[in-house]
Design a protein around this nucleic acid. Sequence first.
DNA 1: AGAGTTAATGCAATCGTTTGTATAAATTAA
DNA 2: TTAATTTATACAAACGATTGCATTAACTCT
Lengths: 354, 354
Amino acid sequence: MPVTLKDIAKIAGVSVSTVSRVLHDNSKKYTISDETILKVKEAAKNLGYRVNALARGLRQNKTCEIGVIVPDISNPFFAELVKSLAGELRVKGYNIIVFDSDEDPLIEQSALKSLIEKRVDGLVVASVGQDFTQIKKVRDTEMPMVMVDRCFDELDVDSVSVDNVLGSMLAVNYLINEGHRRIAFIQGLPGTYANETRLQGYKKALHNAGIPIDKHLIAGNDFRSFNGYLKTKYLLKLSNPPTAIFTAGDLIALGALEACKENNVRIPNDISLVTFDDPDYASYLSPAVTAIEQPIKKIAQMAVAMLYDRISDSRNERRKILLEPKLNIRNSVARISSTAIKSQPANTDPNNTR
Amino acid sequence: MPVTLKDIAKIAGVSVSTVSRVLHDNSKKYTISDETILKVKEAAKNLGYRVNALARGLRQNKTCEIGVIVPDISNPFFAELVKSLAGELRVKGYNIIVFDSDEDPLIEQSALKSLIEKRVDGLVVASVGQDFTQIKKVRDTEMPMVMVDRCFDELDVDSVSVDNVLGSMLAVNYLINEGHRRIAFIQGLPGTYANETRLQGYKKALHNAGIPIDKHLIAGNDFRSFNGYLKTKYLLKLSNPPTAIFTAGDLIALGALEACKENNVRIPNDISLVTFDDPDYASYLSPAVTAIEQPIKKIAQMAVAMLYDRISDSRNERRKILLEPKLNIRNSVARISSTAIKSQPANTDPNNTR
DNA sequence: AGAGTTAATGCAATCGTTTGTATAAATTAA
DNA sequence: TTAATTTATACAAACGATTGCATTAACTCT
């Protein structure tokens, strides 16, 4: 059985409260003789004392734990985010409890339940959901919470994310500048914040350029790679296929690459590719993929700062932070001459055997 | 303030113990009238009761939490491992508390401390360490623990990992069969289990083939990509450079790719590459990289099963499990004719401008 | 020398559960 | 009808810490 204050008290011949003060209480409110301090510390060390965080948390009504929920920790974006959050929080004296909701609202819900029961001091949530009833319930609690990446426009809640609309516009504008007109969008899970805002940016960029939106060029239904694979196959089979694909997430792009490879469609010669998210390996892909980079570290920093503010003072007003994305140009986009676009179908490459 | 059993008891007009039994106790040891059950459940629902896991854990002496420590959660291998562990444990009713030690033994140590203080029911540890004094101390506790991926040969402790020696041999034997003789090894952190065993396999394969070990061809000192980058640059500059590089981890391979790209060294034409670890994106890299795949899901399953055994019965003997790795052949290795090898220096390609 | 301080420590309540034992009322058995 | 049993519930002691208050002894001041 683990050692308790009581055990130490017995051996050191003092009371439990004295032991507690020696070991944990730094407020010099109580004076304790050097001799006692020595005896207690000695005994604690010999017995290998470890404070019971449950008992302490119960008594102090705080746990120094922050709950983190992400939809998919194997997605490099979230892995990096979790790492950054953990780093930021560690220096502030907090540990994190991570839940992977596996893109499943039910798991997310049970994760929320668990974390609340554990009495974490705060929550950082990247929600799967298209629907915010559960999140709203938590917000209406005194539980400090900030949402990251996946949040809800309509819900008044602290949140930090990248400016997805701007990100998509950067990507699509770049494609347009390179001469593309038929630009497909393979989206993630419809109804989610990340997806809707990215879609919105895509549409806005096309609209600004006076390019009508062709709904056959918008496909996809989740953020996984298989979705990218399937929808790329579909797009390549269109009678009038796109000259460029913009994917809503890194995994989708991976799937798109696979589909192109299988169909012997070369990037960027036969079709161009840009993706939202910029994982470390993007520059080593075949070809190096042009991508929208999110400032992950900064997202984590802001989220932690906001959470900290809310923990300290729950009564200030809620904020929604948008950070700037960045376009990293690599080799997955081909320039198309505008004459070619006007005079003939996009796919002019005889090697393209799709 | 959160709702407690007391609040419910007051409203329902019964005692706290009755409330507790209605809400949580499934042992039909105590009979409670339907009327009371209804009243209590009603009140609990109305008040939005959430059990306090701290109080419960304290009383029951268990938390249903498992601590997980990994050296780098942004490494896809560990991200995937954590995800698998979380999935396996969730169905068994356990949550996980993840710590990222950031390859730092001091952080690992403080993570261990935190987790023990939190009274987790068990630990799954992929240790950074070259040194197992801390881990040994934990093992000698009644805390159930299993080590994964990074363990210690000399320490008697439950562990699950891939057969690293075999994995390296698969990789190196394959290179040898393709005609390579000058095979470099870019290693990870020396002194760690994963590294030493992989190095051992590398040496053994060379030895079995009667190829002497050239210590200039063994370089590197951690598992990060920058290490791969630097050491590849170094290897390329050797007067008698290797014809193939075998890297000890996926991130190292990424660094190697970058260095080759910068030096206009083509893979596999100018140099071949094989890596330990096989992340999802490996097949989409430029070129698709031949890699040693670890059965991550199986590692997680075994680890959880073993941990579970130990939690149920701490007195059975400790086991060390080795799982089989798999060689996934892709396009990063060139066949070298044996005549070329015998008659002239390995690098015969005039395009190689290193 | 007595009053007032200060130093050093102990007592006991508390946090929110769980759970063994006790108890009262209702039912059954003899 | 009374003892034995069952049903339904309450009491109270843990779990291991923290912390306001009380207490004792020693010291300082006048």
